[in-house]
């Protein structure tokens, strides 16, 4: 007689398949998101590109308008603008991903400091601090720090991460509080599981899953902010779409494509990433996240 009991391996693979099917939309969206990343990063690296050397207008500029060879035209030094936009956008997205990841990790750490406390008002200090933050636009704080410090990457990433943590900390805290009213959590308390078991094994995984959606939503927002800061000249010596547009504005009569196409490119990439982020967040049922940047 054939043994109908499934082996451990096949049982595990079936469970894995079932989970993959449950999260098929998230996987598809994550793949699309990562493909956009990969396409941007495939353009090259920024190591040998210095904005101060390429965004200048020599006496005899070598720029060319948009054509078949150069879709977006070329810069005054003869560089392909489309490729330059891809490299600049890749760097911006990398910075945005780093800042939002660090910010979310900081917010999570801050929430975990209070999460094991059984008191009902354990998050009240964090929430009060968060409310004060709403009185000040984040862009203002970033501008002050970057203008004073010279606009380095470390200052940008660290300040953005702190701002993300400051504003999202209360949201994460409210997720924790809402989770505690879920029927399965109430049942777990009744059954006699300890608080640390419930927080670590039930509430934290659900919160981390939602954080993935927030991460996807944050990247285009931070990227937009970084471009704005670079446009204003607080982007230090790094290549950015904002810097390209600012340079294009200086030569608006001679080479208008330098001000037009980088913006078109940035808008398209941000639209794609924004929509993918929104759909990812919806698939993961992240819920309301205040837009603060």
């Amino acid at each position: 007689m054939k043994n109908r009991k499934q082996s451990k391996a096949s049982r595990h693979s079936l469970v894995l398949l079932a989970r993959a099917w449950e999260t098929r939309w998230v996987i598809l969206l994550a793949l699309a998101y990562l493909s956009t990343f990969a396409w941007l990063f495939a353009a090259g690296t920024v190591e040998d590109i210095r904005p101060s050397e390429i965004l200048v207008t020599p006496a005899d500029p070598a720029w060319e308008g948009p054509g078949r060879d150069h879709w977006f035209g070329t810069t005054s030094t003869g560089l392909d603008l489309f490729n330059l936009c891809r490299i600049a956008m890749a760097q911006t997205i990398a910075l945005a991903a780093l800042a939002s990841g660090l910010g979310l990790a900081l917010a999570f750490l801050a929430v975990m400091l209070f999460a094991f406390d059984p008191g009902e008002k354990r998050f009240s200090l964090m929430k009060s601090f968060g409310r004060i933050g709403t009185l000040m636009p984040c862009a203002l704080v970033l501008l002050i720090i970057l203008a004073g410090s010279g606009g380095g990457i470390a200052a940008l990433v660290a300040t953005t991460a702190i701002l993300v943590a400051w504003h999202l900390g209360p949201t994460l805290a409210s997720w924790f509080e809402d989770s505690e009213n879920r029927p399965d959590i109430v049942s777990a308390y009744i059954v006699g599981l300890s608080r640390s078991e419930i927080v670590t094994n039930r509430i934290v995984p659900a919160t981390i899953r939602k954080m993935v959606g927030v991460f996807a939503l944050l990247i285009p927002q931070i990227a937009l902010l970084e471009m704005g800061l670079s446009y204003l000249g607080f982007g230090s010596e790094r290549l950015s779409i904002g810097g390209l547009v600012a340079y294009g504005q200086q030569v608006i009569i001679e080479a208008p494509w330098l001000a037009v196409y980088p913006g078109v490119f940035a808008a398209l990439v941000l639209v794609v990433m924004g929509l993918l982020g929104w759909l990812t967040s919806r698939s993961l049922k992240t819920g309301k996240v205040r837009r603060f940047l």
């Binding site: 285009p220 937009l224 471009m227 704005g228 446009y231 779409i241 904002g242 547009v245 294009g248 504005q249 608006i252 208008p256 001000a259 037009v260 980088p262 913006g263 940035a266 808008a267 941000l270 639209v271 924004g274 929509l275």
Partner: peptide, 16 residues
Amino acid sequence: VLASIPGFWWVIQVAI
């Protein structure tokens, strides 16, 4: 979609 367009770039386009 419209909110994803950088605002600083939009006003420059109007100027051009």
